[in-house]
Amino acid sequence: MVLTQRAFWEARGRSPALKPVVFALALVPLAELALRLFGLGLWGALGVNPIESIVRFSGDWALRMLLVALAVTPLRLLTGLAWPMKLRRMLGLFAFFYAALHLAAYVGLDQGLDWARIWADVVKRLYITVGMAAFAILLALALTSPKAAVRRLGGRRWQALHRLVYPAAVLAVVHYGLMVKADLTQPVIHGVVLALLLAARPALKSWRGRRRSGAEGRVRTAGRGL
């Protein structure tokens, strides 16, 4: 019974359609942005301040993708399913992709590649400093995401490095909160989701542990590291 279930979900994890489908879904925001650039988006054109719209849009999606990537492990712990783990790296790379777009829009469109002005922003404005720190972490994680990097660094060191995704996500939410002028609703919503995702890990792990020791051998999770 256990083996059959496991085989079933493992097979789902190897499903040829899953990754391409999620990949395509993760590109939908980019397509929406491209359509809006030409005034064809479902939610209209880019509006009165198009450069601000691009910066905001890409930043919103960078944070959302990061939260989705961080939801993978809690989902696995909650359901015992293995296949979401196969999407984690891709989702993390999409978070990096939208963050890179966000940074490029700020540097290129908003600041017009005026490096002196950008550097002044980085050192003087806390929300930009914090955002840059979050991006630097995501960059390091993206660069070390290939399997070859895991081998070169060794599993333990690689894992220690990639735990920096938690501070990166916290910095991203703080960046958002420091940026808005008065209405903290959206940053708080994202912060609460992040807090729940982070708190879910230890909570679900101990719940899993209790279940396992309570019914030794009956329930076997397909976990392979967290």
Binding site: N49, I51, G112
Partner: peptide, 8 residues
């Protein structure tokens, strides 16, 4: 357009 707004 977005291109004309590039220049601050």
């Amino acid at each position: 357009s977005i291109f004309s707004m590039f220049e601050r």
